[in-house]
């Protein structure tokens, strides 16, 4: 294996994790964009998504061919998490919308304990094996191994990000979301149903986290009720890295963080990979405090 091949192989490894981080980071950034709330329960929504997909996958793989089972599990988890995200906004955050922002932050931390413990009670405290129905197909391209699973992760993540970009930039709903992000009060005066719009944002972000959870479970093969904490923290970091509130920023930030971790473990040492990733992050933020693509944050803070 030559140096170039090794580099490309590590690039492929990093891209896989990065794509999953990006999907989750989108939820953080979208929610921050509209109501300036860092929804720390978002990592748990990701974790709940992986458990929903696990349940559906176990039920479906015996009945239907694997692509149908996979699609069913993905759509089911997305739907379930959308309802969860919408519900969290409706019953946990909306009642305290007028309260100081710290109250919502504390509520988010409380919610994440509730969700973690609910899943622990329902599914047990131990690691669960996540069935992966995707056959182990691998291609050798110039000495670099790429698996069908990796291609699937990249494909699904890219398709969803394009879809989201179109939704935000090309539809009326997206226009309303962008307007709300700029000025919530004026939007309300203009007759935009702001509450419903915020609910939709939560549902969308949660659906993306559910996809992240499903792909995460399939790629690594085990899930646990406390996975949401670490992965959520990494995804939040990715959102900050890209510029929180900025949708393409979250995508770039997620992929970049995945690559940094991959190269950190691949070229330095696996025990220093987080240190390496965060040192780069700190340096980047020192040079550009609003994140890579973030512009608006400055005038908000």
């Amino acid at each position: 294996m030559t140096g170039t091949q090794l580099f490309l192989q590590q690039l492929a490894n990093g891209l896989t994790l990065g794509a999953i981080y990006a999907l989750i980071a989108l939820g953080y950034t979208m929610i921050y964009g509209v109501i300036q709330l860092i929804n720390f329960a978002h990592g748990e929504v990701f974790m709940v998504g992986s458990y929903l997909a696990l349940t559906l996958m176990l039920a479906l793989t015996a009945l239907v061919p694997w692509p149908v089972a996979l699609l069913g599990a993905l759509l089911g988890a997305m739907l379930g998490c959308s309802v969860l995200g919408w519900g969290i906004e409706r019953w946990a955050y909306r009642p305290i919308r007028q309260a100081p922002r710290l109250n919502a932050l504390i509520t988010a931390i409380g919610l994440s304990f509730v969700l973690q413990n609910a899943i622990m009670l329902l599914y047990g405290p131990t690691d669960r094996q996540f069935p992966n129905p995707v056959p182990l197909v691998r291609w050798e391209i110039g000495g670099v191994t790429v698996t069908l699973m990796q291609v699937l992760v990249w494909g699904v993540a890219a398709a969803l990000m394009c879809g989201l970009q179109w939704l935000v930039m090309g539809t009326k709903l997206g226009m309303a979301m962008r307007a709300t992000a700029q000025d919530l009060k004026i939007c309300r005066l203009l007759g935009i149903p702001v509450h419903r719009l915020i609910g939709v944002t939560f549902a969308l972000g949660s659906a993306l986290a559910a996809v992240g959870g499903t792909l995460f479970g399939m790629t690594y093969g085990t899930i646990n009720f406390h996975d949401g904490y670490v992965v959520g923290l990494k995804a939040f970091t990715a959102a900050v890295l890209g510029g929180i509130g900025n949708i393409p920023g979250a995508m770039v930030g997620g992929v970049l963080l995945g690559l940094l971790e991959g190269f950190g473990a691949g070229y330095l040492s696996s025990q220093w990979k987080n240190v390496f990733a965060f040192v780069v992050l700190v340096l980047l933020l020192l040079g550009k405090p609003t994140g890579l693509l973030g512009e608006r944050v400055a005038d908000r803070a």
Binding site: M1, L6, Q9, Q10, N13, G14, T16, L17, F216, Y220, T222, H226, D227, V230, E261, G262, F263, G264, A265, G266, Y267, S269, S270, Q271, K273, N274
Partner: peptide, 20 residues
């Protein structure tokens, strides 16, 4: 001789490094 973090899931970069 390297360390891995408890709770970590992605060891592909580490194992890829061992290939050569």
């Amino acid at each position: 001789h390297e360390g891995v973090t408890q709770g970590d899931k992605d060891f592909a970069p580490l194992l890829t490094k061992l290939k050569p």
